[in-house]
Amino acid sequence: MTALDVLLAGALPVLAWRALATDDLHEAVVFFIALGLVAALAWARLDAPDIALVEAAVGAGVTGSLFVTTLRARGLRPPASPAPRRARIALAVLTIASALGIGAALAALPAEPPGLGELVRASLPETGVQHTVTAVLLNVRGYDTLLEMAVLVAAVLAVLARAPSPSARPAARPAAPDDDPARPLIAVLARLLVPGIILVAGYLLWRGAFAPGGAFQAAAVLAGGGILAILAGRRAPDPHARAVRRGLVFGPGAFVLIAAVPLIAGRHVLEYPEGWAKVLIVAVEVALTFSIALTLVLFFPASGEKGT
């Protein structure tokens, strides 16, 4: 334990409190993003580089910009009144008591615990990849990841449930007003960064087979590039277009297909045939990267929705 650990671990609850207690919503969102960045450092300190990568790209990046976009779309509204005082006090007492209970339970956890780590490392040669986290995500517990992709698609369908269709939008409207003074600058930034971002995403994807990295990390980076390009004036993908819909379900669909084929052969769900694990995992990862990145981009409101 170093001073840095104490600083990071102490900063997280403080930032959480500031994000949730301040009256100014803009301030709240800034604190939220700062918390994501500090959390990414905390993951690195906890030897979780995979999570650090995702947190930096998604927790602070994508989620943070989603909050900013929503704040802009909703405009300033009168502050809402909080819960009644008595309820707040009761709930505060309850949460503090449970936090103390959970803390005591954590302190009582065994220092040298049983875990599945040894078992995973022992089975690593059979998984087809050399990085343990990727082995768990896409082989040993690949079924979780399959359902997780379904969650992602269900969420984007819920986001688009009653989003305005392109026909309802004013025709030929650019993605953002042209008088936006930021546009040329962001265009420069996009020109400089997007090629590098694509390169980094490909590198992360390839690296995932043997070191921290993988489909989700790559997709998060790729989505960041996509959002930058849209901010710089490139047309956003139309969620109602057939091609976009196909791209959306391409990755998860390929995953379901690969999960289903062993069933036909009388094996188990997602049981990769002997010797095929590596090839199939890479194929699934490539397909997923593409679809996840598209999904993350589609989480951002289409221009027609802005300001409603």
């Binding site: 979780a48 995979d50 999570i51 995702v54 947190e55 998604v58 927790g59 994508v62 989620t63 989603l66 909050f67 976009t69 929503t70 875990g115 599945l116 780590g117 995973v120 343990t132 986290v133 082995a135 768990v136 995500l137 517990r141 979780d144 990841t145 997780e148 969650v151 992602l152 269900a154 969420a155 984007v156 819920a158 986001v159 989003a163 989700f216 996840i292 993350l296 989480f299 409101p301």
Partner: peptide
């Protein structure tokens, strides 16, 4: 132990999905 890492990665995706849905 890599298993909790994988669980957290899955959890983060679920969390982003729910947040995006709520914001929309």
């Amino acid at each position: 132990d890599p298993v909790p890492h994988a669980l957290v990665l899955t959890g983060i995706v679920v969390s982003v999905s729910a947040t995006a849905c709520a914001l929309a």
